[in-house]
Write a protein that binds this DNA or RNA. Sequence first.
RNA 1: CGGGGAGUGGCGCAGCCUGGUUAGCGCGCUUGCCUUGGGAGCAAGAGGUCGACGGUUCGAAUCCGUCCUCCCCGACCA
Length: 483
Amino acid sequence: MTTNERLVKQITAKSEDFSRWYAEIVQKAELADYSPMKGIMVIRPYGYAIWENIQRAMDLRIKATGHVNAYFPLFIPESLLQKEAEHVEGFAPEVAWVTVGGKEDLEERLAVRPTSEAIIGPMYSKWIKSWRDLPVLYNQWANIVRWEKVTRPFLRTTEFLWQEGHTCHATAEEAEEETLKILAMYKEFCETELAIPVISGHKTLREKFAGAQMTYAIEALMADGKALQMGTSHNLGQHFAKAFDIKFEDKNQTLQYVWQTSWGTTTRMIGALIMCHGDDSGLRFPPRVAPVQVVIVPIAAGNWKETVLPAAQAAAESLKKAGLRIQLDAREEATPGWKFSEYEMRGVPLRVEIGPRDVKNGQAVCVRRDLKTKQTVPLSELAARVPVILDEIQAVLFEEAKTFLAANTRPAGTYEDFKSILETKRGFVVSPWCGESDCEEKIKNETMATIRVIVPGTEARPSDVCVCCGKPALTVAHFARAY
RNA sequence: CGGGGAGUGGCGCAGCCUGGUUAGCGCGCUUGCCUUGGGAGCAAGAGGUCGACGGUUCGAAUCCGUCCUCCCCGACCA
C-alpha cells in the first residue's frame, strides 16, 4: 500500500493506530455517526443492516430453542429496581432517571431500563401460579440505557440495542441447563455467523452480573490483543424470585420459588466484527452477516450500456434469485478504481467485475475481499459458484481468527511471565489462580488484566500455584485486558 | 470522573502565538466536454462566517471565561 493511496483514502491504517482506525472506519464506512448527545450514536443504514442480519440469525436460534418474544416497558419504577439489593447497587451508578412527566414532577422517579429483570419480575409473579405454567421462556429485543462515562461506537454507548432472555424454571437443575444451553448457542452463533471464535466459561464472583448466582460468558479476542465480552448468560438462582415473589405450586402442592435465568447479546457484536476481521484497507465482513454480500461493478467503456450493462443486470438478477444480497453499482460518475477501493473499505466480501472483455468471453471477474484474489467465472455459472465462494470466505475469516486466537493465548506460570506477556503481546494469558478476589484485584491494579472466564476443562493440577500470590491454585483462569 | 489533545464548507487541513479588507488550500459536490479493467483530465461554478454562549476591544477564527462534543491514557461498565 503506497502512501499516496493512503492519503486519498484518508483512513488511518489499522496497523498504524488501531484505535484511530476503528473510530474512522465506523464513520467512513457509514456504519454509525455521533449524535449531538455525548456517547449516544446513530446507527446508519449500512450498520443497521448488519444488526438486522444478526437479529434474524439470532432470533431463529432463540425460537428454535423454544423461546418466544415479548415486550416489556422501557420505564422501571424506582421501587421495583430496589427490590433486589445487589442488583440495584450494581446498576445505580449508570441509571438514567425520568423525574418529570409533561409539566408535573413524578411522585416516583422512573428508571430508563438498564436491564429488565426488575420490570419483568412483577409480571412473572402475576402470571406464574402452577408448575404447569413452567418453564417460561421469554426473550425481548429492546434498547437499553446505561450512563457510561467512557463511550465508543458499538463497543460502549449510552443507549444500545440488545436481546435479553428471561426464563423461569421449576428446578435449579433446569435453570442451570438453560443457562448453559444459551451459552453454547451464543458460542455457536458467534462462530457460525460472525466467524469469530470465542472462549466460554464462567465469570468470577467479582465479575458476575449484579444479582446473579453465576454468570457465564463468551469472550473473543480483538486484533489489538484486547478481549471483548460477546455475550453473557446468567443463572439467577432464586434471587429475583424471592425479591419479586415469583412462586408456583408444585406437584406436591407446596409453594416454591422459581429458578431463573437471563442472558443477552448486544450491538457490541458489530464492534467485534469490525475489530476482529478488518485490515488496513478497511472492513471485512463475513458473508453471512454482510449488508451487501456481492457488489457488481460494470466497467463502462464504449457502448457499455448496450453490452456490459445488460450483462451486469442479468448477473445481478440471477444472484438475487440465488438468495444473495446484491448491489449493482452502475454509476458513471465514479470510476471503477474508486468503486473497488470504496467497497473494499466497506467490507463487501465479493466484488464481481464485468467489462467488455468479459462480456465477449461470457465471464465475470470475481475478486475476494478476504484474500484479494481474482478468478474468472463463466456468467452462466455465477449463481451456482458465488454462494460457494462466499462460504469459502466465511470459512477463511473464521480460520484466520482462530489462528490469531490460538497464537495469542499463552500460558504463564510466573507473575513475571504474566506481566511480560501483557506488556508486550497482550492476548489471553492462561494462569493458575488461588480463587481469592484480593488476588484478582491486585492483578487488575498492576496489569490492567481481569479474569475474563474460567473455562471448563482448565482445572488446576495439584502442583499448580497462583500466578500472583503463590498459594495453591483453585483453578486456571483466562486473563486479558478487555474493552 | 481525573490527566492530555482537538473542534474552521461534506472530508482532511492551514490561518490563531504577534487581533485589522471579500477566511484560504487539497479532496469531494454541481454543470459541460472527455474518459472509465485499481480512487482519470480540462473548464466553469456552488458551498463556511470559524463547536455554543458570554466577555475584552473601534474591530475577534485569533485574546479571556463558561459550557457542549470527539479522540487518547487511566478509574467504572455489555
